[in-house]
Design a binder for these strands. Sequence first.
DNA 1: ACCTGAACACCGTTCAAGT
DNA 2: ACCTGAACACCGTTCAAGT
Lengths: 196, 196
Amino acid sequence: MQTRRYHHGDLRAALLTRAEQTLREKGPGALSLRELARDLGVSHAAPSRHFKDKQALLDALALAGFERLDEVLAASRTEGETFADRLGGLVRAYVDFALANAELLDLMYTVKHDPAASEALITAAQRLGATAVELVAEGQRSGEVREGPVDDIAMPVFTTLHGFASFAVSGVLSAEQVGSGLEAVIAYMVRGCAPR
Amino acid sequence: MQTRRYHHGDLRAALLTRAEQTLREKGPGALSLRELARDLGVSHAAPSRHFKDKQALLDALALAGFERLDEVLAASRTEGETFADRLGGLVRAYVDFALANAELLDLMYTVKHDPAASEALITAAQRLGATAVELVAEGQRSGEVREGPVDDIAMPVFTTLHGFASFAVSGVLSAEQVGSGLEAVIAYMVRGCAPR
DNA sequence: ACCTGAACACCGTTCAAGT
DNA sequence: ACCTGAACACCGTTCAAGT
């Protein structure tokens, strides 16, 4: 039987999987290409065939994170309830993802310092906002949200969503505060969106 | 004249100053203790007398950032205007600081992965919230903000504040979007705080 | 096409020793 | 008290060479 050679067909995917695991378990500081390669049984130079840089691997990780979060948010759009309920679902989905993937979320929104390379990440983040836009537009159609340019409402909503998740992840809000504060945040968002 | 020896009296402060400069100019990835020591004309082992760790230096940098932001926010509390105006001043102050200190803000809110060491940073972040609490409480007294537990309103407000600044820093919102969106954010916050 | 092995220039951290 | 110099164990990246 072959023991190794092409690793097992997909070193690139294996690197990403393993990297995310290390990120979650030991933090971003402990993420080393050489250790990754060691763990996967390839030479330390092998990863460079798939990622030109350590940063390129981190960017790919962040991009995958955005894609997963996007799916999670889209899936949270349960129908047939009030605007407030649907908004609550969105907030809960975002916060749950954030808490379950704290280090990854950090990575996703970290300033890249290379403007060119971060372009794809920025558009991925902006795509997330589309879910908020749809939700708000729907609320406007049903009369549960005040009129006006949808972005003027959806952008601040998304901003609150992200700020809350960010505080949860960074520990500024404790787990208890996040749980008990969720209702207050939703109430605050609705008051800011309600026609009157 | 003495050329060096105790550097020039305060290596610790010099390290912090220089580190922040490097952070701003070349990003967090380019921050190396050895290079810092070289720049300051001391041996590479000298910094360890003042910071047990590279992380300890980063923590000190973040803590100083919180203190400066706290001053900036407190100073933004101009009096004699409407609640909306004072809130607008707070948002502008936070966003201005964020844009002028993007990498530092990132560092301030980055997950530390060492729960014990990040305690001081978390309380520093929470102290920032006090400014929002005072502003909201004041609004409640003047009747410009709805009644109820002040934290139920101040926490979401602070959350929006931070989320907006975070999007500005990470580039999710372009400079133009930040400028033009500021009014919308304030309007959204006020609607969420207004008695009706 | 994909990977190895050696090489290069850098790190952070520690610790005896100096002043 | 504060710093130096040497040492140790690690990095990321590159590049000829192998299969």
